[in-house]
């Protein structure tokens, strides 16, 4: 009979905080970089010029339809063969950014398209400059539309960062596999890491819900109900 024994993992507790930090760091960098990619991508996709529009669409479709794992292998193993050696962490970061950037592009594009033309015209007619128009009129409205999918995507990035373990990045999932392999306490290490991911994801989720409530509290009375 299997005896559940979380204490069996105790010798492995030391490297765990470092592993969690690495997961967070990798995710954070990927979030920041993919937001930049997404903004750029969305501008391309909503451009009046055909070429950036096509390139943006192609980027989104390609990256959305290829598993993240394959992108990671392509960068880590594939580029090495053509002479570009990228280490594990940076391979994972680039792959995560490319992958999440495609989804970011779609989220930002959806937000931009949801703003009716009349909003731009009204703001311009009041003498607003380009930056003012985006700062006071467009962005606040876009944010209301995108914050929910954005929260889900950020959770997706944290979850996706687990794949860095397949190319030896010492983050949380790698810790789980090592602790499991060396103690045969697989179930325990799985549950421990499962809890860690649930806590991380739900923290982001709560942030997303709080943002929603905050936006609702700021909504004019007529907009509720």
């Amino acid at each position: 009979m299997y005896e559940f024994n979380l204490a069996g993992l105790l010798p492995y507790i030391d490297p765990l905080p470092r592993a969690i930090l690495l997961t967070l760091w990798l995710s954070l960098l990927a979030i920041v970089m993919s937001v930049a990619v997404g903004v750029f991508g969305a501008l391309c996709r909503t451009s009046t010029n055909l070429i950036p529009r096509f390139l943006g669409a192609a980027y989104v479709e390609v990256l959305r339809n290829i598993p993240l794992l394959v992108v990671i292998y392509l960068i880590f193993f594939g580029l090495a063969q053509v002479g570009l050696r990228v280490d594990g962490f940076n391979s994972a970061l680039i792959a995560l950014t490319l992958n999440a950037g495609a989804y970011m592009t779609e989220i930002f594009r959806g937000g931009l398209l949801a703003i009716p033309n009349g909003q731009y015209e009204a703001a311009r007619s009041q003498g607003m400059t380009g930056p003012q128009l985006y700062r006071y009129v467009v962005f606040p409205q876009v944010f209301r539309i995108i914050y929910a999918p954005l929260g889900n995507l950020i959770i997706g990035i944290v979850i996706g960062s687990s794949l860095a373990s397949v190319i030896g990045v010492e983050e949380v999932t790698t810790w789980m596999r090592r602790a499991g392999d060396e103690t045969f306490r697989y179930m325990e290490s799985f549950l421990a890491v499962g809890v860690i991911y649930v806590v991380l994801a739900q923290t982001i989720n709560i942030g997303r819900i709080a943002t929603g409530n905050w936006l609702l509290s700021k909504a004019p009375v007529g907009a509720r109900r």
Binding site: Y2, I155, I159, S165, T173, M176, R177, F190, G194, V198
Partner: peptide, 24 residues
């Protein structure tokens, strides 16, 4: 929420090794 929060890779690991050892 639980199964949306745990990475699929971790679930694969948990199902393959975890269940195999825990449930014999």
């Amino acid at each position: 929420e639980v199964f949306r929060s745990i990475p699929p890779l971790v679930l694969f690991f948990g199902c393959f090794y975890g269940l195999s050892y825990a449930l014999q």
